[in-house]
């Protein structure tokens, strides 16, 4: 089985790095990061990296998470690519619109770096 290709989009440099390291603990994951919605779209549309899942921060300047997801989904071949939002908004009612925006699930920050990759896999499996 080939590695799971993950695209992580976040405007915070430190969190981007931590997430990349954390996800990297799972040797079956191939992780790429992007620092904005625009960068993510550029990367995916170049065809250089074809993600199996989008991990998206919600609050980002210029393009927020849901907008980024909508744009990514419009790219050829990604209409059904699963997406997970990673947000510091912890309250349940704040999660509902994210699920409605078409996400597979929501993970809250701060996340536990050790179990982060496992959580992503759990959400993808539909649990």
């Amino acid at each position: 089985m080939s590695a799971l290709k993950v695209l992580y989009v976040d405007d915070d440099t430190f969190i981007r790095e931590v997430a990349e390291l954390a996800l990297g603990l799972d040797s079956e994951m191939d992780v790429r990061i992007a620092d904005s919605g625009t960068a993510a779209i550029a990367l995916v549309s170049s065809g250089e990296f074809v993600p199996d899942v989008f991990l998206l921060d919600v609050m980002m300047p210029e393009m927020d998470g849901p907008q980024t997801l909508a744009a990514l989904r419009r790219l050829p071949g990604h209409a059904a690519t699963p997406a997970i939002f990673v947000t510091a908004r912890a309250q349940a009612h704040e999660h509902t619109p994210l699920i409605e925006a078409g996400a597979q699930g929501v993970l809250t920050k701060p996340f536990d770096p050790i179990s982060f990759a496992g959580e992503v896999r759990r959400l993808l499996a539909g649990g």
Partner: peptide, 18 residues
């Protein structure tokens, strides 16, 4: 939460020997 995410994540990775 945003900076805490980075701190907690970084520390967690360090602690786990990453």
């Amino acid at each position: 939460r945003t900076p805490l995410t980075a701190i907690a994540g970084a520390l967690g990775l360090l602690q786990a020997g990453a």
